[in-house]
Design a binder for these strands. Structure first.
Lengths: 183, 183
DNA sequence: AAATATGTTAAAAATTTATTTAACGTTTTG
DNA sequence: CAAAACGTTAAATAAATTTTTAACATATTT
């Protein structure tokens, strides 16, 4: 290879590294480990990778790569692919950020809505019992009512969150907010 | 206080605790410390609190409360209020989850879009230089073009994220996805 | 002005999380 | 069937984060 083409190749690596760093840094905030974040960002520029390639490329241990790739599969940012002829498992990165967004946030929000709604329902049942209890003092009943109403009010938010999830899953959101190029 | 009203009050505490636990647990995933998560969830059922009340209620150190409350102020889930007559600072929790959602995600997504767009722009400049460089081999040029196109494609996503942020900030999103009760 | 109240910063300790090394279980190859 | 390849699990180490204790700065009261 000529020396100047080697320079061009280095420049390509440099360009990739800038994007890899940025992706990995923002992924940190998504609750994945640095290893997983770096791994995904690296795979974003690869067609497919095996565990051994991962650990060579990132200079990390194999179990670390194994764990990271599993976590990435959970949030569907990486898929396992069958490669005939190879004993090694091969993995590819999901390169469509829209799909990653969908899976990640829908999972997260659904969990949040479900958990909190469950707790709210139980709490409201308790509060109703207090309100109906004839031995509760008027102040106690008033307090129970206040909290009941506050919780009732908050349901609006969780309903909305669930609607948001549904509109993303069904892709209806893209009718309201279309995908487009430019900038 | 009669014994049965005391029981009712305990029941109210129990009801609150269920919701506090659920909120705190989901907040963990939002990148705040357990102390901050518990603090917010506790404040959600209070009118206002001082640092000393916080540490009494959560049985934690004052610096921990001080740090937590500052973090919560950053993401605008807590505001400082002026209470005349009191030397102590008083804080109130933002109880409108819609507003918390807006501030938190808009901050997060804007940061992500900005950071990654910046990196993409720089990377694309590098890649164009490689493509234009007459000493680059045809394969190198092809590779550079491939990455350039991949990055160009991904811009669509970041543009969309920014549109999403704008539609949340302007509240236009609620025309598409209205807030409503029921369930 | 001294003593107290309030909140923050800095250093230390404790806890949690991430990563690695080592061991293990399968499967495959020679 | 023994040896090697591959991946995972478990225990140990390393690193990072969270929380606390202690010291400090500022303002307020007496």
């Amino acid at each position: 290879m000529s020396e100047s083409t080697e320079g061009s190749n280095n420049k390509i690596e440099e360009a990739k590294n800038k994007v890899i760093s940025a992706i990995a840094e923002t992924m940190d905030l998504y609750g994945v480990t640095p290893a997983a974040a770096n791994l995904y960002a690296t795979m974003y520029f690869k067609d497919q990778m095996t565990l051994d390639e991962m650990r060579t490329e990132l200079e990390m241990s194999k179990p670390s790569m194994s764990t990271s790739v599993r976590k990435l599969q959970e949030i569907e940012m990486v898929k396992k692919t069958f490669t005939r002829g190879s004993r090694k498992h091969t993995y590819i990165a999901e390169k469509n950020f829209f799909r990653s967004f969908m899976v990640f946030y829908c999972q997260m929000w659904e969990r949040e809505a479900k958990m909190n709604m469950e707790a709210i329902k139980e709490a409201q049942e308790d509060l109703i019992a207090v309100i109906k209890d004839p031995t509760s003092s008027p102040e106690t009943v008033a307090t129970a009512k206040k909290y009941y109403d506050q919780l009732e009010e908050s349901k609006t938010y969780y309903n909305w969150l669930e609607d948001l999830v549904a509109s993303i899953r069904s892709e209806k959101i893209f009718e309201f907010l279309p995908k487009h190029k430019q900038d």
